[in-house]
Amino acid sequence: MRDLETFIAGLPKAELHLHIEGSLEPELMFELARRNNVALPFGSVDEVRAAYAFSNLQDFLDIYYQGAAVLLTQQDFHDLAMAYFRRAAADGVRHAEIFFDPQTHTARGVPFAVVADGLLSAMAEAEADLGVTSKLILCFLRHLSEDEALATLDEATPYLDRLCGVGLDSSEIGHPPAKFARVFAAARERGLRLVCHAGEEGPPAYVWEALDVLAVDRIDHGNRSLEDEALVRRLVDLGMTLTVCPLSNLKLCVVNDLSAHPLKRMLDLGLTVTINSDDPAYFGGYVGENWLQTARALSLTEADLLTLARNSFTGSFLSPDEAAPHLAAIDALAAK
């Protein structure tokens, strides 16, 4: 194989599983805390990083929500997103489909419009200045009620033409996808695409529910699908994209070692998998680092990496015409 780091850096990529609030680096967290006069439960950047020792998803979420408290103004959300886009562009990301959690902010009194307008302005700037296109996906917090999710969807009505889809994130265990059947049906009626976190910590049954009850277009994570052979066959037959997040899985103890990550097996089984960074400020790496560390740990071949790059665009919500130039660029790189 050509030099691995250079090859991965040069591969055009789409990132399909990125929580924008999870890209809040400690340095920016402290900058925004000073800007907004918000007290943090940490004394320094080093103290924040020392707290990033998680044993499960909930450990992470507790700190994630504390950090989000510094995000108050439209400029804050703009600056947060632009910091991510600069890192993504440096990693060869040409398109990103980013999640945001409006309920995290509206519960603190931050208006939906402040959040959305800040993110959308950064998305426009990233396309103009960095050449990175993007789409915005509204995620519902699954530990809250479906009625609250329905209220959030109603609140998003003025922005539906600028949203790509809706998703479901936060605490997975005990909050199955079927809990949100009505709000996902309502989102589909409004013309939005549907994605859902399932099979990260939750069982394969959650993936079945995401497919059969929510009728999703894409599965976020999906690792535990491998425990159910019939489910694997179903996902392969559907060509269902799984947005896998290797360093996140390692940091949250979904796997004990990156060499034990199931991504290579997923590829070999014919699943349409992609590599993404999830919450990169908390999980030790943006998308390029996820690609590089995973490729080394699993001895991925050049053909594997090219497949992953193609999957990232074919699994995106870009139209075929929009995806075509990126796929052509991958093919050209493969032919060199």
Results as ranks from 00 to 15, higher is better:
12 P>L: 05
290 N>L: 11
93 V>S: 12
171 S>G: 10
54 F>G: 01
268 D>W: 04
32 L>K: 02
226 L>S: 04
87 R>Q: 12
152 T>S: 15
142 R>A: 15
236 V>L: 15
270 G>V: 08
65 Y>P: 00
23 S>I: 00
43 G>N: 03
270 G>W: 00
51 A>Y: 00
196 C>M: 06
245 C>T: 14
61 L>T: 06
285 G>M: 13
135 K>N: 02
24 L>S: 03
274 T>E: 10
204 P>Y: 00
182 R>L: 05
281 A>G: 12
162 R>L: 05
221 H>F: 06
101 D>V: 08
173 I>T: 14
191 G>H: 08
38 V>D: 05
16 L>D: 05
154 D>K: 15
134 S>E: 03
280 P>K: 05
45 V>N: 12
289 E>Q: 15
40 L>M: 02
169 D>L: 06
197 H>Q: 06
191 G>R: 00
147 D>G: 09
4 L>D: 02
332 A>C: 13
96 A>R: 02
291 W>H: 12
270 G>N: 00
113 A>D: 12
244 V>M: 15
319 S>P: 03
54 F>E: 09
261 H>E: 06
113 A>S: 13
76 D>I: 09
166 V>A: 09
31 E>G: 08
44 S>R: 03
239 G>D: 07
310 R>L: 08
304 D>P: 02
19 H>K: 01
240 M>Q: 08
141 L>T: 14
185 A>N: 13
71 L>F: 07
216 V>S: 02
134 S>N: 02
147 D>C: 08
139 C>G: 10
7 F>K: 09
256 N>Q: 14
295 A>L: 00
39 A>P: 03
321 D>W: 08
20 I>L: 15
19 H>T: 01
76 D>R: 08
244 V>R: 14
169 D>V: 07
329 A>K: 14
76 D>Y: 06
116 A>E: 11
76 D>M: 13
334 A>K: 10
246 P>E: 10
52 Y>R: 12
175 H>I: 05
110 V>K: 04
122 A>F: 10
312 S>D: 09
308 L>Y: 10
20 I>S: 07
322 E>Y: 00
329 A>L: 07
237 D>A: 15
186 A>C: 08
287 V>Q: 08
99 F>T: 00
198 A>Y: 02
223 N>E: 11
149 A>E: 06
211 L>S: 07
281 A>F: 02
108 R>H: 09
